[in-house]
Simulated scan of single mutants.
Amino acid sequence: MKNIYLNAGTINEVFNDLETSFDGVLNSNNNEFNLALDTDLIKGNIDGVTFINGITSIQVNMTFCDNVTLSMESLSASSIVFAYCTKGTFKHSFGISGHQSTLKKHLSTVVTSSRSINTIVHFKKNTPVQFSIIKVETAGLAHTINDSLISNLKKTFLDKQPNYMYQGIQNLRIAEKFHQFNAITEQGMLGHIMKKDIIQSILTLEIDDNTDNIIKMSRAIKCSALHQINELKKISGSIKQYTFDAMFSKVINSKNRIFIK
């Protein structure tokens, strides 16, 4: 098991820290970053882009050669983090001993926290993972672009939900948006603007998903169904164990009667 600690900071500081810590090769141009990693512990790439309205997008494609826990400094109370898994699986918890929730392929999660506790991400060795992270900083910045989007994000995820974590079902519209994002080949300002527009449209979809009553109802039904399935599994396991114990008891009693005769 390998434990990695990642300091909080600007995207530039984070990528420089990763480059130094893991002997990577970092290429950066304006507000875009690409880090190539090929060590005994990590193999893959991390791409990042930051926009002037407090939004950062990071695309991760890597494989760990050992079980790894990545500890990141606690989120600020004004931060919102969206994560989307496109390949493999990994787990998330608040603190090393906190409850671990699993993010599987095609699922997403939303995290906010006003608690002073580190965010922990758990990776399994030799399991390729691909996921995307969008971080929105809603305070302390001059949001000169799309102030209404930031305002709606705050109303949806911060003002009413100060400690919010939701693992959603697959949203095909969001999946398609990420496909479009990863297919962008334009460089310079044009490519940057295209990426910004797609990321902002994804955030708008997230707002819709978390305010639509029909979607909320479907989530509640899903949670209820999963709970019932887990309860049935427990009951089934208890029945199997009871049946085994009863059969074992009969065999022992039968043998005892034979020996007594």
Results as ranks from 00 to 15, higher is better:
160 K>S: 13
196 K>W: 01
204 T>F: 10
252 I>D: 07
177 K>M: 10
133 I>H: 02
141 L>P: 01
98 G>Y: 10
184 I>T: 08
127 T>H: 12
147 D>H: 07
117 I>T: 14
156 T>V: 06
220 A>N: 07
184 I>K: 01
161 Q>L: 12
189 M>T: 08
187 Q>L: 03
163 N>M: 05
182 N>R: 04
88 G>D: 04
198 I>H: 03
102 T>L: 09
243 T>S: 14
126 N>M: 10
172 L>F: 14
180 Q>C: 08
229 I>F: 11
20 T>R: 07
162 P>R: 02
109 T>N: 14
225 A>N: 12
150 I>R: 01
39 T>D: 10
129 V>S: 00
37 L>V: 09
84 Y>A: 05
148 S>A: 09
85 C>F: 03
223 C>N: 13
62 M>L: 15
203 L>Y: 03
65 C>N: 11
88 G>N: 08
153 L>Y: 03
102 T>D: 09
82 F>V: 15
47 D>H: 12
6 L>F: 10
222 K>F: 08
35 L>Q: 03
210 N>V: 03
190 L>W: 01
2 K>A: 06
17 D>C: 01
209 D>P: 00
177 K>F: 06
257 R>Q: 12
45 N>I: 10
184 I>N: 01
116 S>E: 14
234 K>Y: 07
87 K>A: 14
9 G>F: 09
69 T>K: 08
70 L>C: 11
199 I>K: 00
174 I>Q: 04
220 A>C: 09
232 L>M: 15
208 D>P: 02
171 N>D: 15
30 N>V: 02
184 I>W: 03
163 N>V: 06
129 V>W: 00
177 K>A: 12
46 I>M: 07
224 S>I: 11
105 K>H: 10
30 N>K: 04
150 I>Y: 02
86 T>A: 12
259 F>W: 13
55 I>P: 00
159 D>N: 15
222 K>A: 13
67 N>D: 13
53 N>Q: 05
221 I>L: 12
45 N>F: 10
225 A>H: 12
27 N>Q: 11
68 V>E: 08
73 E>P: 00
227 H>Y: 15
108 S>H: 04
190 L>Q: 01
211 T>C: 14
24 G>V: 05
255 K>I: 13
29 N>P: 02
73 E>C: 10
240 K>S: 15
192 H>N: 10
221 I>C: 13
240 K>G: 14
150 I>W: 00
32 E>T: 06
99 H>N: 09
68 V>Y: 05
140 G>S: 06
62 M>D: 01
11 I>Y: 04
38 D>M: 11
172 L>Q: 10
109 T>P: 02
258 I>W: 10
203 L>H: 06
261 K>R: 12
247 M>S: 14
168 G>L: 02
89 T>W: 03
190 L>V: 05
48 G>R: 03
88 G>Q: 06
193 I>K: 02
259 F>A: 15
115 R>V: 15
221 I>N: 10
138 T>L: 04
27 N>A: 12
30 N>R: 01
260 I>R: 04
234 K>W: 04
42 I>M: 08
31 N>E: 07
